[in-house]
Design a protein around this nucleic acid. Structure first.
Length: 410
DNA sequence: GATCCACAGGAAATAGTGGCTT
DNA sequence: AAGCCACTATTTCCTGTGGATC
C-alpha cells in the first residue's frame, strides 16, 4: 500500500479556493466594476490615464477586480496599434515611505542585473531614476500600488508622479496610478494637494454581506468540490461567520477550504457544520501562532516573561512585575535587556495581536493607574511555540514550573 | 471638588546598519 | 576614507490621565 494516495473524495480542484486563483468572472461587484471600467476607458483611447483609488477592507475584491480588469484591458488594447500599455504591479506591504516605493518601482522596471539598493541615494535621485525608466518604457504605464496605505502620510511620490508630465519630466511616458488601500482613513491623511491630483476616481468596495458571500462560495464550491459533499448549511455558515467577522471573501473561502481539509483528514465523505466551526478555530489559532513566531527576539522574551508568571498563576500582572522576569529571561539567553519603556511597547504589540490580554486598573490616589497583562491564549500553545524558537531559551525555572503545572494538571 | 499616585505613552535624541558619492 | 542619505530600533525625558482618597 502506498504511503501517499490520491484522495478524491472531497476536492475536485482545491486550487480554486486558494488566494491566487483568478476566477473568470467577478461576483456581486457589478457597480464597482462598471465604475472601474469607466475610469480605465481613457487608456483604450490612448489618452493620459486617470488616477484611480480603490478603498475597502481586505478580501472584498479590490485586488481580484483589478487583476481581472487589467487582464482584459491588456488583451483588448492589443487591437490598437497606437496604444502601448505597460502595467507595473507593486505591493507596498512593509514599504513605509515614498522613497522605498519609488526605489522598488525602479527595481520592478529594471532588469534583474541592474537593481538598485533601497537606501543610500538622495530622494530626488530615486525619483529621477524612476522617471528615466518610465520614459524609456514609453506609452501608457499603469502603476498599481497595492496596500498603498502602508506608506502612511509620506506622500511625496503620490504628489510627484501624477504631475511628472506637467512638470516636463516625462514626454513619452504616460503614467497612471491605481492605488489600492485597505484603510479609508488613509485618504484623510493625505495632504490636500495630493488629494486633488490623485483621487480623480474613487471606488469603494464595501464588505460583503452574508448573502453575497454565499453566492461567491456557491460558484467556487461547484468547481472546487465534488458534488454532494457539503452538508446542508455549510456554505451559509461559512458565509455567516465570515460576514460577521470581516466581510471578506478570502476568509469565507479559507474557512471552506479548511473545513474540507479537516473532513478529508478524517476520511469522511461529507463536510459538516462542525467541520466549519473547527476550521474557524484552527484558522484563528494558526493566525495567532504565526504572529507569535514572527515576533522579534525581545517580543519573544517579553512573552516568556508573561508566560513564566502565568505558570505560577501570578497573572494578570502589571509591568512592574513582568519587567524583572523579562530581564532575567534576557540575561539567560545572553542578550542585553531593553529599558522598561521599550519592553512595554513590546507588550502593547503582543496585546494588539491578541496574544496578550490587557486591562486598565486604577487604584486612584492610593495606587495610581496602570495596566495588567495576561495571556490571551492557552499556556500550552505558548509553550509549544516558544519551545521551537531559536532566539529564545526558556530559563530552567520556567521549565521546572511548566513541568510542575503539567503534573498537577494530569 | 481638589489632590495625587503610578504609570502610559508622546516626542525628541541617540545608536547602529547598510549603502552611495566624491 | 570621510561625509552623506535613509531607515530601524532604542533610550531618555517628560507631560497627561482617571479615579479613589482627602
Amino acid at each position: 500500500m502506498p504511503l501517499f494516495d490520491r484522495d478524491t473524495t472531497i476536492f475536485r480542484d482545491e486550487d480554486v479556493l486558494r488566494e491566487d486563483y483568478q476566477p473568470d468572472s467577478i461576483q456581486e461587484r457589478d457597480e464597482e466594476l462598471d465604475a472601474y471600467k469607466t475610469a480605465l476607458q481613457p487608456v483604450v483611447n490612448g489618452a493620459q490615464p486617470r488616477n484611480v483609488f480603490l478603498y475597502g477592507k481586505t478580501g472584498v475584491g479590490k485586488t481580484v477586480a483589478t487583476r481581472f480588469l487589467l487582464d482584459h484591458l491588456r488583451r483588448d488594447v492589443e487591437e490598437y496599434d497606437d496604444v502601448d500599455l505597460s502595467i507595473v504591479w507593486l505591493n507596498c506591504n512593509n514599504l513605509t515611505s515614498s522613497y522605498q516605493v519609488a526605489a522598488n518601482l525602479v527595481n520592478e522596471l529594471r532588469p534583474a542585473n541592474e537593481q538598485i539598493s533601497t537606501t543610500g541615494y538622495p530622494q530626488q535621485k530615486i525619483f529621477d531614476m524612476l522617471y528615466d525608466e518610465l520614459e524609456r518604457l514609453g506609452g501608457t504605464v499603469l502603476i498599481v500600488l497595492d496596500e498603498i496605505d502602508h506608506i502612511g502620510d509620506d506622500d511625496d511620490l503620490l504628489y510627484e508622479l501624477p504631475r511628472a508630465r506637467a512638470n516636463g519630466y516625462l514626454s513619452a511616458g504616460k503614467p497612471g496610478i491605481i492605488g489600492i488601500s485597505n484603510d479609508f482613513s488613509f485618504r484623510s491623511g493625505l495632504s490636500p494637494k495630493v488629494k486633488d491630483a490623485l483621487c480623480e476616481e474613487e471606488i469603494h468596495f464595501s464588505p460583503y454581506v452574508a448573502s453575497e458571500l454565499e453566492s461567491i462560495l456557491d460558484q467556487r464550491a461547484a468547481k472546487a468540490l465534488h458534488d454532494d459533499v457539503l452538508a446542508d448549511g455549510v456554505l451559509p455558515l461559512c458565509a455567516a461567520l465570515a460576514a460577521q467577522d470581516t466581510g471578506s471573501a478570502r476568509q469565507a473561502l479559507d474557512l471552506l477550504y479548511k473545513a474540507g481539509d479537516l473532513a478529508r483528514s478524517q476520511d469522511v465523505a461529507e463536510v459538516t457544520e462542525k467541520h466549519v466551526r473547527d476550521a474557524q478555530r484552527a484558522l484563528e489559532r494558526g493566525r495567532i501562532k504565526q504572529g507569535m513566531v514572527e515576533l522579534t527576539q525581545h517580543g519573544h522574551l517579553s512573552l516568556v516573561a508573561v508566560l513564566s508568571l502565568a505558570l505560577e498563576e501570578e497573572t494578570p500582572a502589571r509591568v512592574r512585575e513582568i519587567y524583572p522576569r523579562y530581564r532575567s529571561a534576557a540575561e539567560y539567553v545572553g542578550t542585553n535587556p531593553l529599558v522598561r519603556r521599550r519592553m512595554h511597547d513590546h507588550l502593547s504589540d503582543l496585546a494588539m495581536q491578541g496574544i496578550l490580554h490587557r486591562n486598565t486598573r486604577n487604584e486612584g490616589r492610593a495606587g495610581g493607574k496602570y495596566y495588567v497583562y495576561d495571556l490571551d491564549v492557552a499556556v500550552e500553545m505558548v509553550m509549544d511555540v516558544v519551545d521551537d524558537l531559536e532566539t529564545v531559551d526558556l530559563p530552567p525555572t520556567v521549565v521546572r514550573q511548566a513541568e510542575q503545572t503539567d503534573l498537577t494538571a494530569h
